[in-house]
Amino acid sequence: MTPRANGSRAEEQRQRILAAAVGVFSRRGYRATSMNDVAAGVGLSKPTLYHYVATKQDLLVQVYEQVLDESLASARTIVAAAATPLDAVRGLIVERVAYTCEHRDLLKICFEEESELPPELAEPILERRRAFEAVVHDAVEAHLAHTGTDLGMPTRLYVNTCLGAANWAYKWFRPDGPLTPRELGERVADVQLAVLQR
């Protein structure tokens, strides 16, 4: 066995553990979940689980890091590929709605368990969130500067409204409904972009 193979297998096991934790946290809530529950969810003994993760809190932090790192990377890619600032804003809104609908278990944890993070662990996560929000804010500002549009409200308020609507979709989106996550994202974007195109 090469070190690369060992590392790859260990990472695969960590991802399985994280997926199991997401499932259990989402169903039972973080506080009501024990490491025994996570171990059972992934089919490992508790001592083996502790070989890969030190605490339940570490798993919660990893959930936040995964969501925010994926969101930030995706947002930067969308902005870099957009033909215009307005296209960038549309792409960001559509993607945020779609991601939220496609990862409802993850988003449920992120929005409902934040109080479980102690301040020293919460601050780096908040920095990631602010970085993501800054990408959206800058795209809106670029559009306003490009078109001379008067938004009629602070840009931060507009961005928070857009993201709030997108993020809340984890509560009410139904996979068996008439729209796919991306189609829903397009509809939400149509409504929100109307403010930018007055």
Rank of each mutant, 00 (worst) to 15 (best):
E11W: 03
E11S: 11
E12F: 06
E12Q: 15
E12T: 13
E12R: 15
Q13G: 00
Q13K: 15
R14G: 01
R14C: 02
Q15L: 14
Q15A: 13
Q15V: 02
Q15D: 12
Q15P: 01
Q15M: 09
R16M: 12
I17W: 04
A19W: 01
A19T: 12
A19M: 00
A20H: 09
A20D: 11
V22A: 05
V22T: 11
G23W: 06
F25E: 09
F25D: 07
F25Q: 14
S26M: 06
G29H: 12
G29Q: 10
G29L: 14
G29S: 13
Y30R: 05
R31M: 09
A32I: 09
T33K: 07
S34C: 10
M35N: 12
M35F: 13
M35I: 14
N36S: 10
D37L: 13
V38E: 07
V38N: 09
V38Y: 07
V38P: 11
A40Q: 15
G41D: 10
G41F: 09
G41W: 06
V42A: 06
V42E: 02
G43C: 09
G43H: 08
L44N: 08
K46A: 13
K46F: 08
P47D: 06
P47I: 10
T48D: 05
T48H: 15
L49P: 07
L49A: 02
L49K: 01
Y50W: 06
Y50P: 03
Y50H: 15
Y50Q: 10
H51S: 13
H51L: 13
Y52R: 02
V53E: 07
A54K: 15
A54H: 11
A54S: 13
T55N: 00
T55P: 01
Q57N: 01
Q57K: 03
Q57P: 00
D58R: 06
L59G: 03
L59T: 04
L60I: 00
L60S: 00
L60P: 00
V61K: 03
Q62D: 10
Y64T: 00
Y64D: 00
Y64Q: 02
Y64A: 04
Q66M: 09
Q66E: 11
V67F: 02
V67H: 02
V67N: 02
L68R: 07
D69Q: 11
D69P: 00
S71E: 04
S71W: 03
S71C: 02
S71L: 05
L72K: 01
S74Y: 02
R76M: 08
R76G: 14
R76A: 04
T77V: 06
I78E: 06
I78G: 04
V79F: 02
V79W: 01
A81Q: 15
A81N: 14
A81V: 04
A82D: 12
A83E: 13
A83V: 07
T84Y: 08
T84D: 05
P85Y: 10
P85D: 08
P85I: 05
L86K: 09
L86F: 07
D87R: 04
A88L: 06
V89F: 13
R90G: 06
